[in-house]
Amino acid sequence: MNTPQLQRLVFLLLLAGVTLAFLWVLAPFFGAVFWAMALALLFNPLYQRLRRRLKGRANLAALLTLLLSLVIVILPMIMIGASLIDDATSFVQRMRAGEINLRSYFQQIVAALPGWLTDWLGRLGVFNLESLIDKLSSGLLQGSQLLATRALAIGQNTFQFLLQFAVMLYLLFFLLRDGVPLSRLVRDSVPLARSHTQYLLNKFATVVRATIKGNVVVAIVQGILGSLAFWALGIKGAVFWGVVMAILSLLPAVGAALVWAPVAIYLLATGSIWQGVALALWGVLVIGLSDNVLRPILVGKDTKLPDYIVLISTIGGMSLFGINGFVIGPTIAAMFMACWALFRHDDRQRSPDAQGGEPDVPPSADDEH
């Protein structure tokens, strides 16, 4: 009964069991582990340069890279988050006080329309949107209350937040210092062809790096451009709406327009013609163009994913994993396509009438770097 096949099966079951148990243990620190890995991939080129300049002193290079990541990424994100929470709390209070009333804004737009247009839209049933406006207003209020509640929960669980933050920084230091040996260990341990493992690891690193770098840059640019436009037009809460546009810009093509387009329509309908035209032109020609120019360069060029795949995978990832999903979703999509590309390449290689030449997806490390 104690055959080599049985021993192998039992060992594989044991390996799967302890792996799942280890992942279960790490589950409470999922966010900390995930962002430590993502930031390590993002800042690894900087770490390698510092290590060469410091003549191989890995600990010092990792520490300097960690400090730079704090200054460049982590601390600014914490400050922006704190500002967003403060503005969201103010937004909730203004909605409760009746200072912000979407139904009133909608009625102002309708009252400003010409009579013939009002009659035509009435026959189309457009004015039945008032119930939808009420639901949207209620949803915005609930969303802002949820954000404020989450902020209060973070404040009440300061110890847990600090623990997650400390774990992330701790892991980031060691992943920077030992990332290359760890990737080699994974490559040598995974029961796949070495070329396939190397290709998939390179694809994973490239997609994570490009997604974070590209999406964050696009979000910052669109948030700043939108906030400047709102500030110039005297719209209250310019910083808050700029941050909202930055977050929504994680959705390709449609993101920031969900904020500036309704505001431009409202300005046009209520008689502020030049302000509405200026905001619409700024949104289309500047904010929209920045997305169309920057995103393909920073995201699509490296991930080699079509825009519609990026959009769908981003929305799906964020619905499943929250804010982490804007990285996880496209990464899963890219790995899915990479695995099928490798499968297709291997299938062609095994085909008796396979033609010579370069494969569609070369499974070597040199393809990515």
Rank of each mutant, 00 (worst) to 15 (best):
D291Y: 01
R57C: 01
M77F: 11
P191F: 09
R194D: 12
A16K: 11
D353V: 15
L68V: 12
G325Q: 04
L63P: 00
A256K: 00
E368Q: 14
S183P: 00
L298A: 10
G329Q: 04
L67G: 12
R209I: 01
G276N: 11
A253L: 11
P359Y: 01
T89Y: 03
T331A: 03
M77Q: 13
G283K: 10
L141F: 10
L66R: 11
D178P: 00
G357T: 07
G56Y: 04
A338K: 02
L228W: 07
A27H: 12
L15A: 15
G329P: 10
F174A: 03
L175M: 09
L141E: 12
L9D: 07
A229F: 03
R51L: 06
R53H: 12
Q275K: 15
I328F: 12
L13W: 03
A62G: 06
T211L: 08
P262W: 02
I332F: 08
D119Q: 15
W282H: 06
G223A: 01
I154W: 15
M168N: 04
R295K: 08
T3S: 15
A253H: 05
L39N: 12
L163N: 10
L54I: 07
A253K: 04
R344D: 13
F343N: 15
A61T: 06
L251V: 14
A82W: 05
R53Y: 09
V286K: 06
L228Q: 08
S90T: 08
A61K: 05
A280I: 02
A210R: 11
V71A: 15
L201T: 08
K55D: 14
G276D: 07
L9H: 07
